[in-house]
Amino acid sequence: MLKTFVEKNHYSFHQSFNNWHDAIYYGAEPLLKDGTIDEEYIEQIIQNVETYGPYIIIDPGRVAMPHSTLGGKGVHNTAICFMKVEEPVVFDPEDHSKDARLFFTLAAVNPDEHLTNMMALANMLSTEGLIDDLLEVQNPEDLLKLHEKYFKI
């Protein structure tokens, strides 16, 4: 999966964001650029978080998984996009367990592919030590190094 991010150009690295809206936008930007999604999909994700709160935080203080519905409007392909931010993105100023520095933006049209993607993501993120290492990556080469370290058979 780390290798796929690099191969498909589905990654970005940023220093900081003024607000979580920008973070979600830039986390999805590579998917926007290659036509995987439209801006409409990003707006939906932001709207979901506005409505339901930051339920997209999947590892408190560290990892967010921005997404909307499977087969939602403005999604044309199934993919996951990686973003790393140096300074934590704050979703709730009163609750820093809702901060995140690693973003995995989901896009899904095909249920089977999406399930495969999600299983790979769950498997990757539950690999002992991997999230700590991901918090240190600076560039695509580092992602490939981690791929070698953890997933090279």
């Binding site: 997209i56 998984m65 997404h67 519905t69 499977l70 939602g72 399930l115 999600m118 769950a122 539950s126």
Partner: peptide, 16 residues
């Protein structure tokens, strides 16, 4: 359950 039924809840399902 999660908001969309395709992201967070699927991840939870795999963990559960």
């Amino acid at each position: 359950c999660c908001a969309s039924g395709s992201g967070t809840s699927m991840l939870m399902k795999l963990t559960v």
